[in-house]
Design a protein around this nucleic acid. Structure first.
Lengths: 137, 137
DNA sequence: GTACTTGCAAACAGTTTGCATAGGC
DNA sequence: GCCTATGCAAACTGTTTGCAAGTAC
């Protein structure tokens, strides 16, 4: 997500509307490096829109992901966390404080430590179309 | 997971029992490169033990993960998939066939393609203890 | 005015839990 | 015989859906 204007333009370009609820959610996400869950976003936006429902939050987050303004992280069990930074970068999940921290590429990784974080394990997930399915098409 | 014997030894060493159900589940997982979900494992083991319950499957998988015989993959939305190969390697999820394929390190990755699989996006997740929490201890 | 969006409630999927019974060692 | 494991059902978490009413453009 670049900025509010860009985000709203993309929404409009996709035939979607800029509602007060969406504005509030986008404002919470813009520049946010905390990787909030839907739950966190719901509680935050509730302060300004006490009537907002979980459904609206989820639907908005789905829409924002679809137009490429945010990305979903499946780093914590069961939950999805959201990141407005869609540039390539990695994530560190601390089992103690349970926070997700950004880890930017170009750093030395010795598979034991990165940015001072102690690495116990790591996972690399690729998403796309496998060689078999590419051939079938 | 090395082999059945090793696995059972580890169970016993942890004060856990080798039951027919656990034997059946471990047999399904041994050498399995399909990354089955709990659901798949349940249906497979049901063929031999029609009375087995989901609870038993989940409890067994939890136990096996705890003693380090299998690892959990959070690559697909909502579900957890299980991998008896705990050596460092990566995973590719195909959005067409929805299968998870192993990708072994040491390969050239140009971030567009690996093993003939078309990469649309990728995620790197590190797990451990962050620098902040390390200092506090 | 016409889609699209909202908020509610209910449904849903995957997983976990409590508990009485069964069974491994 | 003790303690762990099983199977059932019910609970739980995070997320999604259908729908009537509301609203952006």
């Amino acid at each position: 997500m670049e900025n509010l204007k860009d985000c709203f333009q993309k929404l409009k370009d996709s035939g979607l509307k800029v509602t007060p609820q969406r504005l509030a959610i986008v404002k919470i996400l813009e520049g946010n490096t905390c990787h909030p869950s839907a739950d966190k976003i719901y509680n935050e936006v509730k302060k300004k829109y006490p009537m907002i429902s979980f459904a609206t939050v989820y639907k908005t987050l789905k829409v924002l992901a679809e137009i490429g303004e945010i990305q979903q992280l499946k780093i914590v069990e069961k939950k999805v966390n959201f990141d407005p930074n869609t540039d390539p970068h990695n994530h560190f999940f601390c089992k103690k404080c349970r926070e997700i921290r950004d880890v930017f590429p170009g750093k030395k990784i010795n598979l034991k430590e990165i940015d001072g974080h102690l690495i116990e394990k790591y996972q690399v997930y690729f998403y796309g179309i496998c060689s078999k399915c590419r051939k079938q098409n």
